[in-house]
């Protein structure tokens, strides 16, 4: 059994009178990919943000490598955060800095790396996500998918022990979802410990080692992807899965499959683009018809 990286016990968080997390307990082991799913407002983001102390829990403890980080002093908290990467739904790149500076800022400031050293490492990471040509660009000049890949690289540059993802593909156009998920898969394959909040069920099924279902501030279901996805469920989880499968899972699945096929050389990229363009045209036609 791998060692425990994060141990969360009876975690509670309230905003004023609103209790958002009502006592969560779970363990995250080194190398695990934990996917959190659940209805909107269930507290997934809040849970994730408590893990790296962007939110201060009202009760309970979070042990990171055996140390309770909730009670740590400000300096220790800063160091702990630098050991946990976080990727946001809206990227949150720094618009006034070039891509290279976005990535090297924290390693230079916190890890005390020289500019040259930090930039060499940044370029290696950019190459890994296929964006080394964008090193001198600014965030505005990138597409959403490219921005999110840069955001992942920015976190990776700190060599974190765990990566937290909060709906990393939700703000992306469908055709850009795949490129980001691929980077995440690659990370998982290389043994990165990850906690991912996502609605991409296909990703959850293929990559997760464990799935948590968060609802009303509690973990109401937990298990391997097979346990969660392949077995029929009663109650909220069943409802939830039925809904995402109905509207989103299918589309994402198809798009992903097409892109994968293009990558593997089964069909050409231009053919894919044609299919996507045609799909878009139909969609718009359908929308226009509905309005008229």
């Amino acid at each position: 059994m791998a060692e425990t990286l994060l141990k969360i016990e009876n975690l509670k968080k309230a905003f004023g009178n609103l209790e958002v997390l009502k006592g969560l307990s779970t363990e995250i082991k080194v190398g695990e990919v934990v996917v959190m799913i659940g209805p909107s407002g269930g507290g997934k983001s809040t849970f994730l943000r408590c893990m790296n102390l962007l939110e201060t829990p009202t009760e309970g403890s979070i042990l990171f490598e055996g140390v309770d980080i909730v009670k740590a002093d400000e300096k220790t908290k800063n160091r702990l955060r630098s050991d946990m990467g976080m990727v946001f739904q809206h990227f949150n790149l720094f618009p006034h800095l070039s891509i290279l500076d976005n990535i090297t800022l924290a390693p230079r400031l916190i890890r005390g790396k020289s500019r040259a050293e930090a930039e060499t490492e940044a370029m290696k990471l950019l190459a890994r996500v296929g964006l080394e040509s964008k090193a001198k660009a600014y965030p505005q000049q990138l597409s959403g998918g490219q921005k999110q890949r840069v955001a992942i690289v920015r976190s990776l540059a700190m060599e974190p022990k765990v990566m937290l993802f909060d709906e990393p593909t939700s703000a992306l156009d469908p055709e850009m979802v795949g490129e980001v998920l691929d980077v995440m898969k690659d990370l998982a394959k290389n043994g990165m410990t990850m906690v991912v909040v996502t609605h991409e069920m296909r990703f959850a099924r293929d990559v997760a080692t464990r799935v948590l279902f968060l609802e009303g501030g509690r973990i109401t279901a937990e298990g391997t992807p097979e346990e969660i996805f392949e077995r029929p469920h009663e109650g909220r989880l069943g409802e939830f899965l039925g809904k995402v499968k109905g509207d989103q899972l299918a589309d994402a699945d198809i798009a992903h499959a097409i892109l994968k096929a293009a990558e593997d050389g089964v069909i050409t990229v231009s053919e894919v683009e044609e299919v996507l363009a045609e799909a878009k045209r139909r969609e718009q036609k359908a929308k226009g018809g509905a309005q008229a």
Binding site: L80, L93, F94
Partner: peptide
């Protein structure tokens, strides 16, 4: 948030 999450004070 992004800055703090990277470990900056």
């Amino acid at each position: 948030e992004a800055g703090r999450a990277l470990g900056l004070s």
